[in-house]
Amino acid sequence: MSHKKARPDTLLNMAGILIAVAVVSGVALAYVHSATASICLAAESAKKIESAKKILPDFDNKPSDKMRRFLVDANDNIKEIDPESSLDDKSKECLCEYFPATKGGVPVGAAITTFTNKGYSGHFVLMVGIGADGKVTEVSVIDHKETPGLGAQMVEDPFRTQFKGRVGGKPFVVKQDGGDVQAITGATISSRAFCDALNRAYKVFAEASK
């Protein structure tokens, strides 16, 4: 090892270099974070609007104009909040957004962002399109951390598309638990969580339609 040129191990040297490296790294991180934060946010909301377009039946309003927000706690108690209010990270974790769609003034359904905390890697977020007749028009995965190749298959056919046209009156349950949802092979936990998120969307849908 050519550490012969290295500085001696005095306390001052050691503390000094650690502090210097930590400070420089911290500043660099803060800079990159602030530079990318707005891009991340824009990408996220663009993705939501894009998803809403894909999963809703034909509509001609701007769903984001009449967006409503609901907080759903661990016991599924639903509380509506001001759509403009700013949220801390904890409330963002239990937020459901409701985007109503109309065509010629007649309601045709809604896109709802919903979440679950029961995924294999915890929290993930879906967007569900629900028609005026209560049928699922389409589901799209907004953000997830499930295992690539396993739980992550929920993004693809045929798992996700099996919900299309189903009525969410009674909860979605996977076959393993006595329901009729075909789970992803090797990813029952993710599939269960997916159903959990869908069921939550229907609760919000019912609450919003009151």
Binding site: A6, R7, P8, D9, N13, M14, I17
Partner: peptide, 11 residues
Amino acid sequence: HMVPSKVRIPV
């Protein structure tokens, strides 16, 4: 050359 060898891993 600035890093004392005892703290090189944390650095």
